[in-house]
Write a protein that binds this DNA or RNA. Sequence first.
DNA 1: GTCTATATGGCGATAGAC
DNA 2: GTCTATCGCCATATAGAC
Lengths: 202, 202
Amino acid sequence: MAEEEKTTEKLILDAARKVFLEKGFDGARMQNIADEAGINKALVHYYFRSKEKLFDAIFLEVFSGFFPKVSEIMFSDIAFEKKIELFVDKYIDMLTANPFLPIFMLHEMHRNPEKVVQLMKKTGLNPGKFIGQLVINIPGQSEPIDMRHFIVNLLGLCVFPFVARPILKGMLFNNDDKEIAKFLSQRKAIVTEVLIKSIKAK
Amino acid sequence: MAEEEKTTEKLILDAARKVFLEKGFDGARMQNIADEAGINKALVHYYFRSKEKLFDAIFLEVFSGFFPKVSEIMFSDIAFEKKIELFVDKYIDMLTANPFLPIFMLHEMHRNPEKVVQLMKKTGLNPGKFIGQLVINIPGQSEPIDMRHFIVNLLGLCVFPFVARPILKGMLFNNDDKEIAKFLSQRKAIVTEVLIKSIKAK
DNA sequence: GTCTATATGGCGATAGAC
DNA sequence: GTCTATCGCCATATAGAC
């Protein structure tokens, strides 16, 4: 496939992403990253000068992926309930493919909230678009829903089982990997149903 | 109130709890803890021998608090819907009083999952009790609900806005502290309503 | 028990040969 | 560009006076 010739920079970035996601900034070691990339520690510094700068490169990339590219879905003409279903489907796919991503993001946001604000601007993420739709009327509901709470419900229901996986595994599934994988795969349907019920009138 | 005479050990534990909760194990420094306690660094080692041992003491204590003492509620004769309301009320009170607790727990669980399993036994936390009630029938619902998904929904809806507070603050509330505090105080009612709707028939 | 001073090791970062 | 060797700092931990 002619892909064998990876550049050194790409090797380092792949290694750094893996190590930072697993251990976080404080837990990661430049030596780990060099080992993972199969190169020397000095070379990592040669390409990225400092741990901080390398981390920033990874964080920026990962941050962009944390909020999936679903603007097309959100602002399309699809019915609201169908939008929810599509969003949950895409988001849980992403979480399944990147299980360490949410806990990494949440931890680093606490460690350095200023950086998040700064990076939000770089990625062009625009909260204003959402705020513009804060209160939405759905046919058949008694009163308008607060979109902020709805979004938090949506994200919480999707993300929580992934960030809490280690403890759920121990407490609810006797450390059975297959059982928890099965459980997580059921989340799409569960979350969608809960969210749709949540916007119906009592 | 005659409480001024705190023992040195208590001073250290209080300081360690604060620092570990804020920074995590990797980010915390023994010097920070000593400073916070107003004593010397060597004294911390004199009482707890190592950072690891001090951390274990804190983690055990904090872990016990993460799953609130609501067994009485859960296994009482109160109607199921009222149980939900009481649980959410207590849990969100706890999260409000200890905002760093969930992100700390989740991060450390990822860093060292074995320790969690080990500590679960020490605390006497018994998942079996829950598993015994895995599927529950509520009057007026079409089919039995899976209690595991219900518990995950419950915890996710309560916990997520607290662990994601830094980013929510930036993205949805323009970094306005009052606004996000108000938002969080509304979660009790929102979460209770969503959960109750979730167990009703479609 | 509590302190100051110090040992010991690890990690980020750089120097310099190739 | 890539390596080996090493510097300098900082963090955990201990020694030893009081």
